[in-house]
């Protein structure tokens, strides 16, 4: 047994986890990497774009306010890089601020759905039986309620605020995720490593956290990245209806709404800039999600 003594001194071999494998595959996918770069740039724009302009999102440029249609276009001279909005406010500052809100809503919605939906679905699926029935029927009932109606009621009754918008999105975003997580859990819970954990006497919460959830994450992450754009769309729709974020705050949906209203006066920059950010971000999220799915797809292994 000479090898044993060698081994004690030998360096511990680093293993390559499935995550590392997935990362390698992801970086081979050019569209996904490009999307990731776009998303990083858009996030940087949202975080630091405000430093590039002397204007804030609520300041009105009184000099140009009277003649937005002819003088308010994008220009470096006036330092309104994206032009002005109909009220004479700097559109660049407003797009920066709208991007912050929209990304935040997308990410918060996806996070709520990942955390709540995954744990809820994994618990229901793993424990099974009557508890599973009750938990999933609750999801069915919540899904059957027309959420747009509920959200509008919420916003009307409790006043329109970003917080209420988050509450509304939080209420609905995890439902689909719970179903997906439950379905995956059902297929994982009969694997032998879960049986081994049960036979060893590992407690149920630990099995869910340690054995079920990490094996769900591949599917969950992919679904979450695809959920971000749908949350952004959802918020845009609400803002488009005029129920979302309130002035002077804004979001992509609100800006697009405003720009669309001005279209016939020929001030297309008001629609074009927010729409551009909206579109490239959504595209990037979709390709990013696609790339993740390909990278994490177990069939590739």
């Amino acid at each position: 047994m000479t090898h044993v003594t060698n081994v004690e001194t030998a360096e511990v071999v680093k293993g390559r986890s499935l995550w590392q494998d997935a990362r390698v595959r992801f970086f081979r996918n050019k569209a996904a990497v490009a999307s990731m770069i776009i998303l990083i740039l858009v996030s940087l724009f949202a975080l630091f774009g405000g430093m590039l302009t002397p204007w804030s999102n609520e300041e009105i440029d009184w000099n140009l306010m009277g003649d937005v249609r002819t003088l308010g276009g994008p220009s470096f001279e006036t330092k309104h890089y994206f032009g002005l909005d109909p009220l004479g406010r700097d559109l660049f500052a407003r797009v920066v601020q709208g991007t912050q809100i929209s990304l935040m809503i997308g990410i918060v919605g996806a996070l709520i759905s990942v955390v709540v939906g995954t744990l809820y679905g994994a618990t229901a699926g793993f424990i099974g039986g009557r508890l599973d029935n009750i938990m999933m029927r609750i999801v069915d009932i919540l899904m059957a309620i027309p959420y747009m109606f509920v959200l509008i009621l919420l916003l009307v009754v409790f006043g329109r605020s970003i917080f209420m918008l988050f509450v509304g999105i939080g209420l609905i975003s995890w439902l689909d995720m719970a179903r997906i997580a439950r379905g995956q859990t059902l297929s994982i819970k009969n694997k032998e490593f879960v049986e081994a954990a049960i036979a060893t006497g590992v407690s149920t919460p630990k099995i869910i956290i340690r054995h079920i959830v990490p094996n769900l994450l591949g599917v969950v992450i992919v679904y979450a990245t695809l959920l971000v754009p749908s949350m952004i769309m959802f918020e845009s729709f609400i803002s488009f209806l005029g129920l979302g974020v309130q002035e002077p705050l804004t979001s992509w949906g609100a800006l697009i709404n405003e720009g669309a209203g001005q279209m016939r006066y020929g001030t297309l920059w008001m629609l074009g800039f927010p729409l551009f950010f909206f579109l490239i971000s959504l595209f990037a999220f979709f390709f990013f999600g696609d790339g993740l799915r390909d990278a994490l797809d177990p069939k590739d292994r």
């Binding site: 293993g15 986890s17 499935l18 032998e192 049986e195 990490p214």
Partner: peptide, 13 residues
């Protein structure tokens, strides 16, 4: 267990 690979959690070392 019977299936050696399936009896080990793929996400754990």
């Amino acid at each position: 267990f019977q299936d050696p690979l399936a009896s080990l959690n793929p996400r754990m070392t």
